[in-house]
Design a protein around this nucleic acid. Structure first.
Lengths: 183, 183
DNA sequence: TGTACATCAGTGAACGCGCGTTCACTGATGTAC
DNA sequence: TGTACATCAGTGAACGCGCGTTCACTGATGTAC
């Protein structure tokens, strides 16, 4: 049955929210259109009223996640502290989309890649812009180096099955970044 | 038809080599058993004479890749130079399995995870062991922080569609690591 | 404001397809004599 | 060393299943009068 215009907007939101969590938790291929619609409280047939295809959903979900991420803290030290926390490591479904999906997004459509790539660019520029006044080249180097270390560390910490090693990767990378940005 | 024992060993090698490249290039889900066997020059029916299942192939391929990786250079500076090269960034199929598959391996079987996790542990210990004589804690921090930055940088560089940004991520991370390990 | 009807969001059965896996068969290998 | 035969690696058709996608239908919405 037809639903109101507000309901349509709300349902679109619900589909994107469900897809955001499911894709990060299980990857693009393992999540089906049926899974996403069920998680959004709808049946699968209605999906194509909202999105052209599953690939379209992937691209729009990454755009949605990037837009959300653009509102994050741009202070590098504070960002690193929360990024390199055990809470973030353990929350794949709600965590950084680049750490969860960056590697496999390289094989998705150009639209999907473009969405995440914009998130990457925003993050680096945000860090560089909010840094204390130093030489621009040094600030940019710290922004890129630190961000690469954060993304890598979360991936490594999630991979390590030994909890001691997983914690150590986060802590040591955090300390390493703090030392590096004080140079 | 039956083939010789040497041929069997050679075919197993070919299957693992084909799987190693295909999985890194396209991900676990996108590569089919038919793809792997075709790339190895065989038909798909014979697959189950070599492996119990596709999951078994995934786990054994990661073990195979980790064993190969164990023979790599343990000098951090030399390793970083080649890891952070455009050649490595552009060679997903032949490159570091952790950068290509680390994030999605978290969702695979415990056997698959264990194989890559061992590669991670070996790498960190190799870097730490081959470092010049300094305080052990500092060496370990540099090993972990640098490795996290390398893995993250290659993933970010592959994601960035803008070639200038992709090159910059590699170069800046490389410089950042060199500065950090000279402390 | 109230009524009549066109619109269209959501439903669920159905589709074609490609996947992982199985299996009867083939014929070269390698062993027993 | 040569021969006879059991073994078994590889083949390709076939399977059941779940995927992305389509579509006829339903009934609440929202517009026209």
């Amino acid at each position: 049955m037809k639903v109101s215009r507000e309901q349509v907007a709300e349902n679109r939101q619900k589909i994107l929210d469900a897809a955001s969590r499911l894709f990060r938790a299980e990857g693009f291929d393992a999540v089906t259109v049926v899974d996403v619609m069920k998680a959004a409280g709808l049946t699968h047939g209605g999906f194509y009223g909202y999105f052209k295809s599953k690939d379209d959903l992937i691209a729009q979900t990454l755009t949605y996640l990037t837009a959300q991420g653009a509102r994050a803290d741009t202070d590098l030290a504070r960002y690193a502290a929360s990024y390199l926390s055990p809470a973030h490591r353990d929350d794949v479904a709600g965590g950084c989309p680049i750490a969860a999906l960056g590697a496999e997004t390289v094989r998705q459509t150009p639209e999907a890649r473009a969405a995440l790539a914009e998130g990457l660019r925003n993050r680096i520029e945000g860090f560089a812009a909010s840094a204390p006044l130093t030489e621009a080249a040094i600030v940019r180097r710290a922004a890129i180096g630190s961000y690469a270390a954060m993304v890598g560390a979360v991936i490594l910490a999630r991979l390590a099955q030994d909890p001691t090693l997983a914690d150590e990767v986060l802590e040591q990378t955090h300390a390493w970044i703090l030392e590096g940005t004080k140079r």
